[in-house]
C-alpha cells in the first residue's frame, strides 16, 4: 500500500505492507533513527512521537493508520542549532544518563505541557507514567519538565 505522511515538515511516501509498524516506517523508511524501540510492547514509551500533535507510542500504530497525517519526531523539535526549550531543560537539569529513554521522554513531556501548561510535580509524574527510564533518572527528568514549564509561562 502506498502511504504518504509529513514527518517534521517533510513529505515522506513509501509502498508498505499494512502490517508495517509506524516506528519501523519512521526508522527504516524515513531514516529517522532518533525514535527508539525499547519494549516493542506498548509499555516503555521510548518510541513516543507526535501524531497530529499528540504523543503516541509508534510501536502500537500501523504506518497505514498514519497515512496523510502530520508527524513530529525528536529530530523535528530543535530549530537548527537551537534546542527546543524541553531539550535545553533536559540538558541543563542532567535529565539523561544513557539517553535511551530520552527521545520518547522529551516527546511525551512536550505533549504534556501542551495539555497541562502549568503542571505541578504530581501532574508531571502522572503525565509521564507511560515512559520508563531504566537508568531511573526520574528525579531530574521531572525537574527538567518543571523548568521547561516555568520558562514557557
Amino acid at each position: 500500500m502506498q502511504v504518504s505522511m509529513t514527518i517534521n515538515g517533510d513529505p515522506v511516501s513509501a509502498d508498505v505492507e499494512p502490517r508495517l509498524l509506524l516506528v519501523h516506517f519512521i526508522r527504516d523508511r524515513a531514516g529517522l533513527t532518533g525514535t527508539n524501540i525499547g519494549c516493542d510492547s506498548s509499555s516503555c514509551g521510548a518510541c513516543t512521537i507526535h501524531l497530529g500533535g499528540e504523543a503516541v507510542k509508534s510501536c502500537t500504530v500501523l504506518a497505514v493508520q498514519a497515512d496523510d497525517c502530520d508527524i513530529t519526531t525528536i529530530e523535528g523539535l530543535a530549530d537548527g542549532d537551537t534546542l527546543h526549550p524541553m531539550q535545553q531543560a533536559f540538558h541543563e537539569c542532567h535529565a539523561l544518563q544513557c539517553g535511551y529513554c530520552t527521545p520518547g521522554m522529551v516527546m511525551a513531556a512536550v505533549s504534556l505541557l501542551d495539555e497541562v501548561p502549568n503542571p505541578t510535580e504530581a501532574d508531571v509524574r502522572e503525565g509521564l507514567e507511560g515512559n520508563l527510564c531504566r537508568c531511573t533518572g526520574y528525579h531530574n527528568i521531572v525537574r527538567a519538565v518543571l523548568q521547561a514549564a516555568g520558562d514557557q509561562s
Binding site: A55, V56, K57, G130
Partner: peptide, 9 residues
C-alpha cells in the same frame, strides 16, 4: 486507563 499515549489512541 493506561497512560496519556494510550488515551490519545
Amino acid at each position: 486507563v493506561g497512560d496519556p499515549q494510550v488515551r490519545h489512541r
